[in-house]
Every structure is written in structure tokens, then in C-alpha cells.
Design a binder for these strands. Structure first.
Lengths: 338, 338
DNA sequence: CTGTTAGCGCCTTCAA
DNA sequence: TTGAAGGCGCTAACAG
């Protein structure tokens, strides 16, 4: 059974108690614990032992009040997208190691109380030590650059943000690599299905087919809803069957790919024999499709870790450093669809 | 462009400023803002106007220090499961409406700093006003019941927790309803594929086939990893094809269902003509499978909302109420696999 | 109905 | 190297 010496904050030891027990002043105890200023080795040990014995934990509210800034890292998300959980876990992990907490804030147009302009004040209200923005909204990114003057602020994005600290996933390079891989596998008619927010992916595709001297087979589309995308994919898949010289490979989003696979199955097109399908994002379901989908993965945990590290660099080093853009590359997850 | 009158907590107005502006004592201002104690309508309005003008926001650190409890709702998750995001969103929504913040904590065996026994102190450290535990761990649930004496504490679970406040999803009833539905559709040989943590689902299945006088076709299994489950499903699907009198319907998890569909496709079994497939959980990918999967959905947003409401009931009403168990029923999402 | 007083627990001077 | 004093912003208890 898990037992603790306290069940609420009120049961926890305070500096004062430590000072009474050790016979030192509160101040000395405080400094010893934080390792600030001059403290003799002996006193330091004395204090640390007492603190450990009482399982002392500083009162964060008091710290925040006094220091005028809390030890919270605020993370702002603009979608409820599942992969974000990994990023959060990574940020959390880094935060804990440094004695920071993590506050999560969701922006969403769906809920009035979560609109960015009402949410941001709420975030600032907690006086966070730093801010991580996971978003594709220009408004939010601009605000991030502006806030950076006063508050360490790192964004997680798909394109580098000028003037701001950011971690970005090189989706363009990812798509390029995907086409390269398909090319090496002997595919020569590589199609691209466009979806919502696929600009960078498209760039990579276009650059690659040019570099490798391949024809451009571009299927436009701009749907946002996963299920609608899937249905569009289904129709696209059937469409391929009617083409005189159909593609022998497709690069597209995981959602679209799920529909394509269904469309191909319906028309007897064999994957990967007749056509290779290569997705994007490595969503949970990619491995569950039929056949399991080869796809480009975002290293989400890594992304979170890099963002947190960059943020702490600013928290430690002040706000005068040059903005940095950390590039994260995508990884190809090989499965049976290629 | 979004502009605020402050960029950090330090720029924000304080009670003292409000008191200077209005000519009232800090105390009066404070009471007027909180609506506590006697305040004349005139003063109240005066204060509220000034507060709005300066966009006053109470300093949460100071409040927490003084009140000895913060205005944070702590939520503890023991998996990174995607559906939890909806629950979080709902809890957050309720919290914001009441002026509370939400702190999210992940327990995970994968990361040492996230083990429950190190995490719980961290949670308590922030002196939360209440705690929501989303977990299937017995240790954690027991601790929840114990904590309840000191701290409002609601669990989100699959079985009611004796002695504790909880919101539970009636998975047993869900499975029962699923079989009932299949029965009404004329299916008479309804199989059940067991998976990790499917006890309640199994109970519902067994009860239903008994009530409707159907044969029990039980395929055991206890895998945990989604991809392995999917592969097992694929094999199960092929297995069905070899049976002298195969089932005409299956109830199982979404993961297993994804594999079954692949297995059926490989052996020429038609869904839903030859066999109906009915999943469980309505995961993101259910609608993306081929054919789109009929499945039982957990109303995650609803679950979160109920948990938050129950928690606030305790926060408002003290810790002496009788423990409550709120039952949430599952909903059948009809798609093309049945 | 309103004001005064006294801290909550911690950290930053400054003095010893 | 250590201690004493003061105050961060807010609220509870009490007095007017």
C-alpha cells in the first residue's frame, strides 16, 4: 500500500519547521536547499537530511508569490490531435527533472472559453516561467514572437518562425525522402494526393519528382475532416483503376491512404504489387490498415524534448539570445504497403 | 492583431491598485469581487467596473497561499490513450467556467518520474482543490478512496469503486446491447473475441447470448499491444474461414476488428454479408477501416463533464456526502460493417 | 455595510 | 558564513 506522510499540502513541512529542527534560521535553510550563496558543507548536509526526513517540498504558491513567477511551463495546444500526447509526455518529463510543473491549455474554436484571446490571459495569469505553443495559427505564432520579449516562448510548428524560438518538423524533406525511397524501389509513376495543410509535403514531392525526372501526378484536395478525406480517398482509389496508365505509387496522408486502400481493394488493385501506398504522420491506425501502411513518422517525443530543452535554455539564460530554429526530420516507418 | 494590456503577470493590476482607484479598502474590494459578505449594490458596481477597466485578475499564487488551497483541478492519467483528450477538454471546460485551472499529470511506468508514488506527492504539492483519477490501476483507485477523506476525489473507471465518487462506463451493458442489436439483425451465431481488459465486455456478451438463447462462440486472447492484437485478429479472421459453420457476427475490440477485417478480406469472406463485425470504443480509425466499422462508443466528453460536475459538487458541499457512482452508457455507432 | 490587522510560506535585501 | 527584517498579493477574523 502506498502511504505518504501527508494527504494534502497543509500536512507538509515548511521552512519554519526545518529551521526549528535544525536550529538554523529559515533563511539559511532556504539557501542551503537551493544551493544559493555561501553555505558550509556541514550545514548543507544537516539541512538536506532534515528536508529528506520530513519530505519537505517548497510551497509553490509561496515561491511564486515571492518570485513573481511560477515554476510552471505552460503548453498551449490548438488541436486535440492524438500525437500531441507524446509531445506533452516529453515536455512533462523534462519539466519534472528540473522541478517544474506543466500546465496544459487547449485552444479551440469549438468552445468559447477556449478561444485564444480569452485563453492567453488565463495562461499568463499563472505567471508561467515559459510557454510552449503547439499550433499552426498565424495569429498565435505572431503573438508568440511578441511575447518572447518578456517571456521565454518556444513554438512547435511546421515552418520555422522568423524572430522566434521554434522546433519544426521538416515535412518537406520527409516527402522528398518518401519519393526517393519509392524511386529506389523502382516506382516511376508516383502520384501525390493533396489534403488539408499539405503545402510542405507538396513542396517536397515536387522537388523530388523534378530531381528524379518523374512525371507529376497531382490529385488535388483540401478536405479537413478525417472521415471525409477517407471517403475522398476511396473514390480516388477507384478513379485510379479507370486510368489508362495508372500510377504505381502514391504519397499522401494516412487518412487519405486509408481510403485509397479501401478503393483499391474494391477494384482489385493489389497493394503493393500494383501500387505502393506511402502515408504521412504514422497515426495510430497506420499499422492496423490492410495492408499495414508504410508511412512517414513525426518523432513526437523527440519534438517535445527539443522544445522543452530550448525553452529551459532561455529560462536559464535570459531573453537576449538569438532566436533558434531546431529542425526535426521525419522517419520512414516501413510496413507492407510499399 | 491581438493586444492585451499586459504581457506577464507582473503587469497586471492588483487589489491595492483597485482600492486606490475606488477609494475603498482592499478588503472591501476583495469581498465585492468575490461576492462574499455584505456589500452595497453601489460599491459592488463601482468595484466591478474598475476591475473590468483594468482587466483585473486575482493573483492565483497569493490566493493559494492565503487560502491554503489552489484553484486547480488536478487530473491524473495512467495511459496516453487518445480518447482521454476529449475527457480532458470537457473537464477543462467545466473548470474554466468556475474559475478553476486544470493540471494534467501522466502516470506511466515507462518514465521513472511518472511512477504513481513519485507523481502523487507532486500532485498534492500544488494543493489542488480536487482530483480526478483516470485509471484502471487498483493501487491508484484505493488511494483515491483514501484521499477522499481529505480532498475531493473522483475516479473515471470501468467498474464502480466502493466508497468512492466515480463515473463509470457501463461496458457490460454496451456489449449486451451490441449482441441484442446483432440478434435483431437476424444474426444467430455471434462470436466474441477476448482482448486485454475485456472482462466487462465479456460479461455482457455472456449474459446476452444466454438471454437470447444463442450459442457461445468464444475466442480467447489477452494481448495488450494494438499491433499484436491486430495481427491476432488477422489470423482469427483466416481461422473463421476454415470453420465448418462459421459465425455470422463478431463482437470485439476495434483493434481486433481491424485485423479481422483484413483476415476476412484475405479469405474472401464478405463483411457484412457473410459476417457482421462490431467493434468497441469507437477509436479514431474505426470510421477509416474497410468497411467502416460499426462500434460501441464511449461518450468521452460526457464522461469528463460528469466527473467534473461530481467533483465540484464535493468541492462546494464538503467531504461528507455519500459516495456516488455515475453510470454512463455506451452508444452504438452504426457504420457499414454490420 | 466597511475598514483594520495580521498573517499564509518563501525569498531578497542588508547587516552581523 | 549566517541571521533579522520586510514584503510579495490576498483573505479571514474582528472591530467599527
Amino acid at each position: 500500500m502506498l502511504t505518504l506522510r501527508y494527504q494534502t499540502r497543509q500536512d507538509m513541512a515548511t521552512l519554519k519547521e526545518l529551521s526549528e529542527i535544525t536550529g538554523l534560521s529559515m533563511n539559511t535553510v532556504s539557501r542551503a536547499l537551493r544551493g544559493h550563496g555561501y553555505i558550509s558543507e556541514k550545514t548543507a548536509r544537516l539541512v538536506r537530511d532534515a528536508a529528506r526526513r520530513l519530505d519537505y517540498r517548497p510551497n509553490r504558491a509561496a515561491q511564486a508569490l515571492r518570485r513573481r513567477t511560477s515554476s510552471e511551463i505552460a503548453v498551449l495546444l490548438d488541436t486535440y490531435d492524438a500525437p500531441h500526447l507524446d509531445k506533452l509526455a516529453a515536455i512533462k518529463e523534462c519539466a519534472v527533472q528540473r522541478g517544474f510543473t506543466m500546465g496544459v491549455y487547449f485552444t479551440s474554436e469549438d468552445y468559447p472559453s477556449s478561444a485564444f484571446r480569452t485563453l492567453l490571459p488565463e495562461v499568463l495569469e499563472s505567471a508561467p516561467a515559459g510557454l510552449i505553443l503547439i499550433t499552426s495559427s498565424d495569429t498565435i505564432l505572431r503573438k508568440g514572437v511578441e511575447l518572447r520579449k518578456r517571456l521565454p516562448c518556444v513554438t512547435i510548428v511546421s515552418d520555422p518562425v522568423p524572430g522566434g524560438d521554434c522546433v519544426y518538423v521538416d515535412r518537406c524533406q520527409g516527402a522528398y525522402d518518401a519519393v526517393h525511397y519509392l524511386f529506389n524501389k523502382g516506382r516511376r509513376r508516383i502520384a501525390f494526393c493533396e489534403t488539408f495543410q499539405s503545402e510542405n509535403r507538396k513542396k517536397g514531392y515536387l522537388k523530388a519528382i523534378q530531381d528524379f525526372g518523374l512525371p507529376c501526378i497531382f490529385i488535388p484536395g483540401s478536405l479537413k475532416n478525417p472521415v471525409l478525406i477517407r471517403n475522398a480517398g476511396y473514390l480516388n482509389g477507384k478513379l485510379f483503376a479507370t486510368m489508362p496508365t495508372p500510377p504505381d505509387a502514391v504519397q499522401t496522408s494516412d487518412y487519405m491512404a486509408s481510403g485509397l486502400l479501401a478503393g483499391f481493394a474494391a477494384t482489385g488493385i493489389k497493394v503493393p504489387q500494383d501500387i505502393a501506398v506511402l502515408g504521412f504522420d504514422n497515426r495510430d491506425f497506420a499499422a492496423l490498415l490492410n495492408p499495414p501502411l508504410t508511412t512517414l513518422a513525426q518523432p513526437n517525443f523527440d519534438i517535445g524534448k527539443n522544445a522543452a530543452n530550448l525553452l529551459f535554455k532561455r529560462i536559464d539564460g535570459g531573453l537576449n539570445g538569438e532566436p533558434e530554429a531546431v529542425r526535426i526530420s521525419m522517419a520512414l516507418m516501413l510496413r507492407q504497403s510499399t
